[in-house]
Design a protein around this nucleic acid. Structure first.
Lengths: 341, 341
DNA sequence: TTGAAAGCGCTAACAT
DNA sequence: ATGTTAGCGCTTTCAA
């Protein structure tokens, strides 16, 4: 079987008896081509099975119609639905998505930034606002547009599509305090290289502090995001000499792990200790009792990030960052502390 | 601030006083360049901040070093960790990943196949072996290598990195029968456009049938993958005049939904009815009681798929498909039926 | 081991 | 509305 040569613009041009420029136009700016011509070209394209060579296109237009996303991990549901929304929004604009994962590691993220840029990404989606100067400088030097999601800063020249982690963590903490809890503990994500984890800790600390002397944050345990680790942290907290009446978790995976462990150890939630989550993923409603948690607008963030990035890629200078509200979803894992009941 | 022109191979060549060909070689086939020359070139490259223009590279080499993956959805954990493994394996080979989602819809998948190929993907990862002839022909016509994951066929010219859904479903069904269950129901994924769902149903049917007259598959309810739908299907099944003693679910999300619903309705699992899952994702251990389920080798599949695809992209004709075993993970949602206890 | 040079297929500025 | 044409930056023979 002979290898069939792939048709080029030139072939189409010859067959349709027009110039290559007209073919190019009829593909990229159809409205600039006469209807009759366009239809004739369409027919020829279909007959020849022509598809543009992406290399030629990128080379000539200096645009790849591709953007990259670097997320900490795809292995849990946390980023998945936001990423999906991001991709779908891009697809509408004919832009495709390159993905890479950093494993919550700044060095690895830097590698992936370079890799995606080397692949010609026109823009980048990054998670969180904490990265080494090296990465920031690199992005600036290469002048590539990027938007940051999962966090928000108002006083920054960077562009965000996210929410205020400090405020969100403070609000769930205040909610917990309002219910009467005074002895609070936290199971947080590892704060290293992770400003979301860091800020959630900060938010809890601030809310407790500003509540006054009566309330205290007994302990903050940091753990990598997994149910197992959440369970271990729970054990550690409950076995301490002064156990908390509520445990605020930096994420639903950790919280779910804590709830499951409580069950195994026959500790009643929320009677003996309350637990709260963060993110509102599937897991939150799977555990028993279901998690009271902070709902994060995954889908909206993904969509907004895509829109912003698309604008920036097509030349808009400094689009306004967008901040989303979070919402406390009340379920059964949180109640007033026992001594009040 | 003046826009700095991005340096090209030519610039590097001039600065290093060699030809562009040598620079190109020192990047792509370093061993073919004298050590001294290579080092000199390296220095210049760093000084100028040179990075290759991807368009030029693709155009000249006719290779994009990019592969695409089209998965039904990123919005649940099912495909996430396999995709992550796939990407990481690719990254080792300097290949980047384009992703798109099809929403379990063949037509949409076809669109995405075209989109990713138009973006120059050198190869494709597809989920499942069921797609319209249109898609198959298109892939064949364009002669693009692709591997199929999440299922397996031995008598096919396509390349698979997956497992046998029929066998896996049969094995959990036999396990259930061995425990003494005779009245079985199933909550399956929607079979349309989804051969994994279809084959899992088939596997259950076959195992029940070959067990003989005593056992019967009362009913198969199809539902889109969500906990809510799983719960609704559970209700429907339990409210029927002849409720089952065990419900085999086509996926952990559906099973988790069923377990949660049982809790809400105060139906004891596994005393009143047993439930089994499929996939072994996080959710399986979050619900109470934890799901007895079929473990699918997500990570291994992702890795194997990447290796196969990489081979095919670099010219290997027909690498051997790889089949993985699944494993039944026993937890607490499955027990012998009440009348045997 | 290195260099010269011919494209790769497309877009976009300009001309008509 | 359409055509002409000059590159875009790189890889890859072929020759030296």
């Amino acid at each position: 079987m002979k290898k069939i040569e792939r048709p080029t613009l030139e072939d189409v041009a010859v067959a349709a008896k027009v110039s290559t420029a007209t073919i190019s136009r009829s593909i990229n700016e159809p409205e600039k081509v006469a209807d009759a011509t366009r239809e004739r070209i369409q027919t020829v394209i279909r007959k020849l099975g022509y598809t543009p060579n992406i290399g030629g296109r990128i080379l000539a237009s200096n645009r790849s119609n591709t953007v990259g996303a670097i997320i900490p991990t795809m292995a849990n549901a946390m980023f998945a639905s936001g990423l999906q929304a991001f991709q779908q929004e891009l697809a509408k604009a004919g832009v495709t998505l390159l993905v890479a994962s950093s494993g919550y590691n700044s060095e690895e993220e830097f590698q992936q930034i370079q890799a995606l840029m080397a692949q010609g990404a026109d823009g980048l989606l990054l998670i969180g606002d904490q990265r080494p100067q090296e990465s920031i400088d690199f992005l600036a030097m290469r002048n590539i547009p990027y938007v940051i999601s999962w966090c928000f800063k108002s006083d920054s020249d960077r562009v965000f599509a996210g929410f205020d982690n400090i405020a969100a963590a403070s609000s769930i903490t205040r909610h917990v305090l309002d219910l009467g809890h005074r002895r609070i503990a936290m199971i947080a994500g590892k704060a290293k290289d992770n400003d979301r984890a860091k800020n959630r800790i900060l938010g809890v600390k601030r809310a407790v502090k500003s509540f006054g002397k009566n309330a205290q944050l007994l302990k903050v345990v940091e753990a990598d995001y997994s149910m197992e680790n959440g369970g271990d942290a729970f054990t550690q907290l409950m076995d301490s000499t002064q156990p908390p009446t509520v445990i605020i978790c930096g994420n639903d995976v950790l919280a779910a792990g804590a709830v499951v462990r409580a069950q195994q150890r026959d500790i009643n939630i929320p009677e003996e200790v309350s637990i709260t989550g963060f993110d509102d993923i599937n897991l939150a409603t799977a555990v028993y009792p279901a998690l009271t948690t902070v709902r994060v607008p995954h889908i909206d963030m993904g969509r907004a990030a895509a829109k912003l990035l698309l604008e920036m890629v097509s030349g808009k200078r400094n689009p306004a960052s967008v901040a989303f509200d979070t919402e406390i979803i009340s379920r059964q894992s949180l109640a007033a502390p026992a001594f009040l009941l």
